[in-house]
């Protein structure tokens, strides 16, 4: 998966509401022109179906028969379409790390998956330079297999050759810091250990675009330190890093830009400190 060294990003975001800011935007655009974009997200919408449940629809004016029909729909044909991302656009450039913030359920993870090409967009398009890798809390590999097998499977799935995986195996295990547990099935791992191993695997092949979905939250302080270093290293290779986190402190520490998403739409996009400050204010009030 290695790398055309040309992936970095910076995010230029445009939400419909924000488009009036003509003049300053133009100026900034000139500055951006020198840098090559690594990720372009163009008016992306993501809808997906969820089986097994249905939102309750009820209203005082609803007739009895309709109410009954709606109730029965929770048992037969219980499929709901979730419109998780609603028209997000931005441009990201090489060498940048971007924090994505927002409340639970705002569509952050879905957006990352769409950028990684793991979830199809229902309209709009995502363009990426080079390879991308998503690291998420629920990116479980095969839990009945040992850590060692999972390192192999994960590495090969990322496009490494068996020889490359074997070559990096010791580094991966050492970075994950899980010691002898590497020979036990992953179902025996604590959530922190599993997250460490996934992080180690995902970063074994240096991607051009790395997306991290809350994965650092489960690690202990020492591991967070190590992963922060790894992220720096990837940015140093002129890669782009996206980080979804609820910890404003880690966003401020590791990112230079932030995008705030609410209900699947971009609320604000800019320097990390400013956006997190705005977000803090808004959430305190709310």
């Amino acid at each position: 998966m290695a790398a055309t060294d040309d992936a970095f990003e910076e995010i230029d975001f445009e939400d419909d509401d924000d488009l009036d800011d003509g003049a300053p935007e133009r100026a900034k655009q000139d500055a951006d022109a020198e840098r090559t974009p690594s990720v372009v997200v163009d008016d992306v919408h993501v809808r997906y179906r969820v089986f097994g449940g249905r939102k309750r629809v009820s209203g005082p004016e609803m007739g009895r028969i309709r109410a009954m029909f709606n109730r029965s729909r929770r048992h037969v044909g219980a499929v709901t379409e979730v419109h998780a991302v609603r028209g997000v656009s931005f441009v990201a450039h090489h060498g940048e790390s971007i924090g994505i913030i927002g409340r639970n359920g705002a569509g952050k993870s879905t957006l990352l998956r769409a950028i990684a090409g793991l979830m199809p967009t229902s309209s709009g398009a995502v363009y990426v330079a080079g390879t991308s890798s998503l690291l998420g809390v629920n990116a479980a590999l095969v839990s009945s297999l040992t850590g060692e097998r999972n390192v192999m499977i994960g590495g090969l799935a990322l496009g490494l050759t068996p020889a490359q995986v074997r070559e990096r195996f010791d580094d991966i295990v050492e970075f994950a810091g899980i010691g002898d547990f590497i020979d036990l099935p992953m179902k025996a791992y604590s959530s922190g250990m599993a997250a460490r191993l996934r992080f180690a695997i995902s970063t074994a092949a240096v991607p051009d675009v790395l997306m991290i979905d809350e994965a650092l939250a489960t690690g202990d302080a020492e591991f967070r330190e190590r992963s922060a270093k790894k992220i720096e290293e990837i940015r140093g290779h002129a890669g782009t890093v996206f980080l979804v986190s609820h910890s404003m402190r880690s966003i401020e520490r590791m990112c230079d830009r932030a995008i705030w998403i609410e209900q699947g739409q971009v609320v604000a996009d800019g320097p990390a400190r400013e956006i997190t400050a705005e977000y803090r204010k808004a959430t305190k009030k709310g």
Binding site: F13, D21, P37, D42, D43, A125, Y127
Partner: peptide
């Protein structure tokens, strides 16, 4: 809004972003 300072590809709509992507 901060997005102004940070800048964006101008408001030309989807095709402009797609063009940018193709150029790069």
């Amino acid at each position: 809004m901060t997005s102004a300072e940070r800048g964006g590809t101008a408001a030309g709509g989807p095709s402009e972003l797609a063009q940018l992507a193709a150029r790069s």
